[in-house]
Amino acid sequence: MSHSADAPLAVAEHPHDPLVAEQFEDLDQQHQAGTLGMWTFLATEVLFFGGMICGYVIYRHLYFEAWHQGSVVVDSFAFLGISAGGWNTAVLLTSSLTVALAVRAAQLGQHRVLVWMLILTMILGVGFLAIKASEYTHEYHEGVVPGWGFFNPDEHIRHDLEHAADQSGINPDLLHRQFQLFWCFYFFMTGTHALHMIIGLGLFTYLLVQALRHRFTPVKHAPVEIIGLYWHFVDLVWIFLFPLLYLIR
């Protein structure tokens, strides 16, 4: 923003700290505003995911049998006896730890620790996305990706569905359709979450670049805290998605 002729007066009144943006009086106000801004944004994200989760929960109540079958299939993809979802949860929770450690390092001015924690967080984030990608591939091969002309579940899944239809007395065709609806929700919810993770990785790339340039000090490290908040939120969404999608019995 250019300075008007009035600026010399204003500047003389109030010499401006170069670290502080022009609209703020001091660093503290800037930090508080940024933090409140991020919390407000996270509130909007709660409503965003909340809409989908609300729909999912309503359908779980209405179509319990189909949801149960869906959850069984989702949870069936496992490495070393732990489901992919379980691994994802472990990875994300650890990444929240590394984020918290990064914030602490920034507050204490520990430059090397900060950089390593940021790198570790990003590796864990990429790890999460890799596990998710392998899950999606697996689900594609099982034929449960929804869509006209797409949805074609494998033999063993069909068999389980028919069995469930017999047991519960639901019309098999209806159960099949409800089952597809489950998969719509699964891909929408995890897909949106993954998109937010990718955005988060982009933000962390920015943080890493800034950290490598020694831009963060114990006095000025607000971006690390604020973006850390965002990452914690994305983790929190997963904490909701995991039981809802994987653990329904």
Binding site: G147, W148, R177, Q178, Q180, L181, C184, F185
Partner: peptide
């Protein structure tokens, strides 16, 4: 776009 259905009764929506 994808022909999936949260609101489509034919798919249980």
């Amino acid at each position: 776009i994808f022909g999936v259905g949260i609101f489509d009764p034919r798919l249980g929506g």
